[in-house]
Nucleic acid binder design. Structure first.
Lengths: 210, 210
DNA sequence: AGCAAAGTTAAACAAACGTTTAATTTAAAC
DNA sequence: GTTTAAATTAAACGTTTGTTTAACTTTGCT
């Protein structure tokens, strides 16, 4: 658990945005330095290398994700379906709230070559699966959820849908209702739409009710 | 509709694999030339530039996708749900059959900067949506499908799930049944698993039956 | 004030990048 | 067999890449 100076945070923030928008190899350290308004040498000075800068971004975000997971583990008073719905909403909020990082994840998980970053990704995904699995299993044993469900694939659908929505937002704007929207309103509109869709999907497949 | 020589096809094939595995900017023309066993200059000679090489790959694959779409449009004798199921299976087959290209699409659709390639992607996605939309609408009007369904989001789920499965295959191998599998058997196993999952999901949400 | 460490800078580094050149070989046409 | 165009090559092109250097400034401590 390290702390970062303002300047370091500025670099991390700019780098995250540029890596998301143009890819890791599509972004030069000079681009980052210029937009963050620091000297090029500071990136190596602070983070060691461009690779380690990416790794730092990952560890930074993943630490937050771990906390996020642990918080979710504490909700014990809810009904199974309420738990699932809460989980869906929290996932949507989390992932759409850090879209730049999610873009980087989308990209990096495609790399065929093994790397520390790729390992971190699948480690985290495993933990997320471990979050939903027991809820479903428990509800299945209690006879509340239907037995014949592939939870791993359901998690894949959850991730996949949200990851697909992130770059699709340009398009969703066109099919949105004609009412004028500022950025915040549109963000809420998207969240609501994904949330409604995923909750319906999960409820239907898990409980066979509507 | 152009034709390509063997050497050109060799370059396209190698480039597609490398772009998928390491990203566009992560792959050098020297890498491509070496693996395709041609001189570096041939790439500029044939395709003009590295950018146009990527664009060529896209146009090549997209032409096939267009044909694919037109074939799907001709199935008129089936029941609505059969049509959907057939569509799901064909999508899975298509996309898992060209995984390298789908990886490139996954990456390129994240680019924030406008480009010919990005336009092509969303154009194609629109066409795919236009493929499912009328089937659903027609069945809704006939009272066979439930009214309250967000087809655009459903299509997002379809794409998202499959796009998420492609890089997740390493992991799926671990949770696969212990029976020994060669590559072809595993590929079939994955297809079957995704297919079963998606069909259940679509049937539940569209018909409210199981 | 004086000193040591940390922070910051412009400049330079070698390596890798995409692309082009000019020379040579191959193939096809007459 | 000669000619013309296409294919292929090794080498060089000028940039850009990530990283390092060495000089300089700021900061914090005694």
């Amino acid at each position: 658990m390290e702390e970062y100076s303002e300047k370091q945070l500025a670099i991390l923030k700019v780098a995250e945005r540029l890596f998301a928008d143009q890819g890791f190899h599509g972004t030069s350290v000079r681009d980052i330095a210029q937009e963050a308004d620091v000297n090029i040498a500071m990136i190596s000075y602070y983070f060691g290398s461009k690779d380690k800068l990416l790794e730092t971004i990952f560890r930074y975000r993943m630490e937050a994700s771990r906390k996020f997971i642990n918080e979710l583990l504490e909700n014990n008073t809810m009904e199974p379906l309420e738990k699932i719905n809460s989980l869906i909403d929290r996932f949507i909020n989390k992932m759409l709230g850090e879209q730049y990082f999610q873009c980087i994840m989308s990209r990096e998980q495609l790399n065929s070559q093994a790397s520390p970053v790729r390992d971190l990704i699948w480690e985290l995904k495993g933990e997320m699966l471990g979050l939903m699995q027991p809820i479903v299993t428990q509800a299945q044993e209690a006879g509340i959820f239907y037995k014949d469900v592939d939870v791993e694939m359901l998690m894949t659908t959850l991730f996949g849908t949200i990851h697909q929505v992130i770059p699709a937002q340009h398009i969703l704007k066109k099919s949105a209702p004609a009412t004028v929207m500022n950025d915040d309103e549109f963000r809420e509109y998207v969240k609501k739409r994904v949330s409604t869709h995923l909750k319906k999907l999960f409820k239907a497949i898990l409980t066979h009710e509507f």
